[in-house]
Computed example of a mutant assay.
Amino acid sequence: MKLIGIVGTNSNQSTNRQLLQYIQKHFNSQADIELCEIKDLPAFNEPKERIAPKGIQEISDKILAADGVIISTPEYDHTITAALKSLLEWLSYTTQPLLNKPVLITGASLGSLGSSRAQAHLRQILDAPELKARIMPSSEFLLGRSSQAFDEEGNLKDQTKVEELEEVFEEFVEFVEITNKLLESSSKIRKSQMSFTWK
């Protein structure tokens, strides 16, 4: 299985990057997980020609080629980062690679709530007509107090959280397989018309 992990922040020091790196390593026998950074991408500016810049196009191509996507988001002011929102705006406005793509949302935060409000907001955003991802239902992974969550080798220290993550990841693998089989057998996959202008 081929998965893409999106680091949902432009911060150079992020426990969400650490979380995805741990997921990439811990589940390497179950999936090939490539991590994508968004910190050097341009801010969305709604170009008239609807052509994605190079960095956006590269991430879009990787999403299209993947079986599923994992997005790990911090929480800034009760929501996702501006950098992640900008990426999603670029994707919805141009290439729309997330249409019908299975997505798992994870998140780490320095506080105790583990980016719960940002994750809820991200679910709403991914359900927008020009994104319309297939978000894994009734499942989330929240990592609170994340600055103390990893050891020097980058492993999660709390075995209970490891077991929770393993359960979530196993469910996501099954969700990806089932979703993609349904899409392969469907003759009417929903596609949005590229007419959204935010005006």
Rank of each mutant, 00 (worst) to 15 (best):
I56G: 05
K132H: 14
Q21F: 01
E166S: 11
F44A: 05
K101D: 02
P102Q: 07
I51N: 11
G5N: 04
L35P: 06
D158R: 10
E130V: 13
E130Q: 14
M1N: 06
K199H: 01
G144V: 12
S139E: 13
I33F: 09
E177H: 14
S115T: 10
N16G: 01
K85D: 08
S14D: 05
I178G: 00
F150H: 07
I33M: 14
V103N: 04
V69E: 07
T197A: 03
V173G: 01
E130A: 13
A118D: 12
Q18H: 15
S115A: 15
E164L: 10
Q148N: 12
T9S: 15
L142W: 04
L64A: 06
V176P: 06
R134P: 00
K161L: 13
V103Q: 04
P137T: 14
D61A: 05
A52M: 10
L131K: 05
L19P: 10
S60H: 07
F150N: 07
L35T: 10
I80L: 12
P137I: 14
N28H: 15
D40G: 05
I80A: 03
K39E: 15
Q124L: 15
C36M: 14
S112E: 09
S60G: 13
L142T: 03
P97M: 10
A65N: 13
L131W: 06
P42W: 02
I59E: 01
E163M: 04
L64E: 09
T79L: 06
F141S: 05
G68S: 08
Q96G: 00
T15C: 06
E174M: 11
K101F: 07
S146D: 01
Y93N: 10
D61V: 00
T179R: 03
F175T: 05
I80E: 01
M1Y: 09
P97T: 08
E163L: 11
K48Q: 13
S112R: 10
E177K: 15
R117S: 05
G8A: 03
L113G: 03
N10I: 00
S192H: 11
I80T: 08
S60Q: 07
S187Y: 09
G144M: 12
K85F: 10
A43P: 00
R17E: 14
T15Y: 07
W90R: 04
Q57F: 01
T95H: 01
L126V: 12
N45E: 09
P102M: 08
M136R: 03
V7R: 06
E171G: 09
A82S: 14
N100W: 10
I125M: 10
E153M: 05
N10T: 03
T179Y: 01
K25N: 14
P53I: 06
M136C: 08
V69R: 04
R50K: 15
D77C: 07
G8V: 04
K132Q: 12
L19N: 08
A128N: 08
W198L: 14
E167C: 05
T179L: 03
E130H: 13
Q148L: 12
E37Y: 02
S72Q: 02
A133E: 01
G107P: 04
E34R: 11
L143T: 08
E37G: 00
K48H: 09
P42F: 03
P129V: 13
I125F: 05
F175D: 02
I105Y: 07
T73V: 10
Y22M: 06
